[in-house]
Nucleic acid binder design. Structure first.
Lengths: 356, 356
DNA sequence: CATATTTTTGCATACGCATTCATTATGGCA
DNA sequence: TGCCATAATGAATGCGTATGCAAAAATATG
C-alpha cells in the first residue's frame, strides 16, 4: 500500500548513539585489527545486538574499493561437472570471506552483456568457466586491476590466467589405452570446436594414434551438447565401417553416446564398442555407465583458481598465471582392457602404461 | 610491488568534466526516465565511451537502498534438479535486471552464518532452495522488508512464501499407478525426514495405499543422498519379503537404487521390481534409466518464484504467498504399466487414471 | 610525582552516485 | 514580440561506512 520501500536498516550511527560512543568506534569494533578498547568494544557489541545491527557491506565497499565479490560466469549447468565446480568454488570463496556473484542461464555464448553487469558491481575477481572473453575485455580487466581466471579453458595468446589439465597428454593417453586394448578403428566425438580443451584433447589423441599408424579417425561434432552428441553417435555408429573405439570429448556427451549405442543400435559395450570419456564426472561412476574416463582433479583445480585470485587481489599484480594439473585415466567398464598397465590407486583403477 | 590497490575506476564526475556538464547530467543520462536533453545525453555518452565509464552499482545501491541482488541459498548441487533451477533463476532474474548472489557448498545444513552474510549485502530478496530458515530469521526478513521464497519446501506455520508442487497428490498418484500395475509389496525410500516434500510425498503414498488395503510399507531412509540411498536399497532389497514396487522420494536417489537393484542384486526392472521417482530430472530421461517419475514443472516453479519476489519488492508488502503447481506422472520403463490410464501428452506418456 | 610513550577516541572527510531544489533555457501561443 | 508553461540544468546534499589526524586518556618510565 505504501509503495514498496525497503526499510533502511540500522546504521552504525544509531548503534553509536545507543552505546554512547562515536560512529568511528562502532566501525572499529567491526573492523578486525582496528584500535579499540575491549570495554568500548563490548559496549558497542551489546548495543549492536540490541538493535540488530549488521554492517552494510555496500557502504563498506564504497570506501574500501573492494566488493569482496567474485563473479563466476558459467553459461550452462547441465553438465554435472560445472555444478561440482560451483559448489567447491562456493566453499573455498566463503572460507576466504568472499561472496559469489553468479552469471548463468544466458544462451548466447557471448559474454559481453554479462561483462557490463559484472563490471558495474565492481567485483574483485572473475572466473570464466564456460565462456571466453574477447581480448579487449580481458585487457580492460587487467587495466582495471581485476584478476580473471579462465577455468578449464585457455586462449592462444596467454594474456589471461588459466587453470586447466594436461588435455593433450590426456588425449594421448586415451589413444594409447585404446590401442593397447587392441582396437582398430577409432572415432572421436568432439566438443566445442572453438574450445582449447577440445582442440588439445583431439590433438593428443590424433597424434598418438598417428604414431601407431592410425591416421583415419572418424570425427563427428557434439559441441559438448547432449542432443548433438546423440545425433553424432547415430551418424557415426550407423556407418558400415563404424569404429570399435570412440573417444568422446567429455562424459556428459559420453553418457548420451552410450545410451544411443546400447539401446538404439543394440551394441554391447565394451564387446562391440569401447567408449572413453573425459572429466570423470558423477554419472561416469554410476554402474549403468561405468565410463572409463580421464579425470580432471576438480578440487585441486578450484583450489588453484581461488589461489590465483587471492594472490592477485592481495598483490595487485595481475600478470597471467597458468596452472596445469594432472589427471588420471580411470578405468571402468566402458572400454576393453589392455593386458597390462592397469594399477590400483586409492581404490580406483588407473591406466599407467609403462608402470604395468 | 605496490601492495595491491585496485585502480579506482572512472567516476561520473570525471565524465562530467570531460563532457563539459555537471555530474547530475551524467547521472541522469544513465537513469532511465530522467529529464535530460538529447544533445546533452549524446555528449555524455560520448565522453563516457571515451573514458570507459560504467556506473558504479555499489554507489548507486547506497543511494537507492536497492542492491538489485537476489540471494540464492542452495546447500548442494549434486542433484541435477537444482542446477536446472539455478540456470533458470539466472535467466529470469537477469531479464528483470537482477543479479544472483549464490550461497552454496556449506555442508552444515544450518543456514544461519550464511544468513548474516546475505543480510550484510542488503540483498533485495532471498530464495531458499535446499535449506529452511529458523522462524526468528524469517521474521527478521519480514521486518526488514526483504521477501523470502522457499523453493520446493514449506514450513508448518506458513509465515514465509513458498513455491511447491502438489506433493501429497503426487505420492497418491504414484501409489495408484503402482496398485493399478498389479504390485503387491510396496517400499518407500525416503528423502530428508525433516523436509515437507518428503513428508507430503510419503503421506499421499501411504494414504492411497492404505485405501487399497496395503498398510505395510517397507521404509528406508535415503536423506536425498546418493550414498545413503544405495545403502537403503541394499537393505530393502535383500529382505526375504522384498517389495516388488518402490517409490523413491526423488530421481537423484532413484538412479542409485536402480543401479544397486540391477547390477548388485541382479534384479530386472521392471519385471522383478518397479521403481518410481520424483522430479523428472535429466537422468530420469536417459534411456539407461527411463525412470517413471512425477514431474515438477521447473520452469513454472522458477517463474512463480521470481514473480513473487518482483511483486513483493515492488509493493513493499511481504505477506506470505503460496504457489502450488501441478506435476504429471511421466511414464517410462522403470515400472510395470497398468492396463489403462496412460495417455499421450505433447510427446510424453502420462498416467491419468479415470481418463481412460 | 612528573614526564614520555602508547593506546584509544572523536571529528571530519571522502567514497560515487541519485535526487531535491532553485535557476535558467526552450518552446508554444496569442 | 511578449508572456507563460515546460523542460533542462547545476549546486548542494546525503546514503553508511572507513580512515587520517589531532586530542585525550591510559600506561610506562625515570
Amino acid at each position: 500500500m505504501d509503495g514498496g520501500v525497503k526499510k533502511p536498516g540500522v546504521t552504525s550511527a544509531e548503534v553509536a548513539r545507543r552505546a554512547g560512543v562515536s560512529q568511528s568506534a562502532v566501525s572499529r569494533t567491526f573492523t578486525p585489527g582496528a584500535s579499540i578498547a575491549p570495554k568500548t568494544r563490548a559496549k558497542v557489541l551489546a548495543a549492536a545486538k540490541e538493535l540488530g545491527y549488521r554492517p552494510n557491506a555496500i557502504a563498506r565497499s564504497l570506501i574500501t574499493n573492494r566488493s569482496r565479490m567474485i563473479a563466476v560466469v558459467m553459461a550452462y549447468l547441465e553438465n554435472l561437472f560445472y555444478p561440482g565446480v560451483l559448489e567447491e568454488l562456493g566453499r573455498l570463496l566463503a572460507k576466504e570471506d568472499y561472496r559469489l556473484l553468479l552469471f548463468t542461464g544466458f544462451m548466447d555464448r557471448d559474454s559481453d552483456p554479462v561483462f557490463d553487469q559484472l563490471m558495474q558491481y565492481r567485483v574483485d575477481g572473475i572466473v570464466l568457466a564456460s565462456t571466453s572473453l574477447s581480448s579487449e575485455l580481458s585487457e580492460e580487466c587487467a587495466a582495471a586491476g581485476i584478476p580473471v581466471v579462465l577455468f578449464n579453458r585457455t586462449t592462444e595468446r596467454d594474456a589471461v590466467s588459466s587453470v586447466t589439465t594436461r588435455n593433450r597428454e590426456g588425449g594421448r593417453r586415451v589413444a594409447e589405452f585404446l590401442i593397447a586394448g587392441g582396437h582398430k578403428r577409432f572415432g572421436y566425438i568432439s566438443g566445442l570446436e572453438s574450445s582449447s580443451t577440445n582442440r588439445d584433447r583431439f590433438g593428443g589423441y590424433q597424434e598418438a594414434l598417428a604414431a601407431a599408424g592410425h591416421t583415419d579417425i572418424i570425427v563427428e561434432v557434439g559441441n559438448y551438447d547432449r542432443a548433438e552428441a546423440e545425433t553424432a553417435a547415430r551418424k557415426m555408429l550407423s556407418r558400415e565401417d563404424r569404429p570399435d573405439a570412440i573417444f568422446v570429448a567429455n562424459d556428459h556427451m559420453a553418457v548420451a553416446v552410450m545410451d544411443i549405442a546400447r539401446h538404439e543400435l543394440g551394441l554391447s559395450i565394451p564387446e562391440d564398442l569401447s567408449i572413453v570419456g573425459y572429466d570423470d564426472v558423477g554419472p561416469a561412476r554410476w554402474t549403468s555407465y561405468g565410463i572409463t574416463s580421464m579425470s580432471q582433479p576438480l578440487k585441486r583445480m578450484v583450489e588453484a583458481t581461488v589461489a590465483i585470485l587471492m594472490d592477485q587481489i592481495a598483490s595487485g599484480e595481475i600478470e597471467a598465471e597458468h596452472r596445469i594439473l594432472n589427471g588420471e585415466l580411470v578405468v571402468r567398464t566402458s572400454a576393453r582392457l589392455p593386458k597390462t598397465g592397469i594399477v590400483e590407486l586409492d581404490g580406483r583403477r588407473i591406466y599407467r602404461p609403462g608402470r604395468g
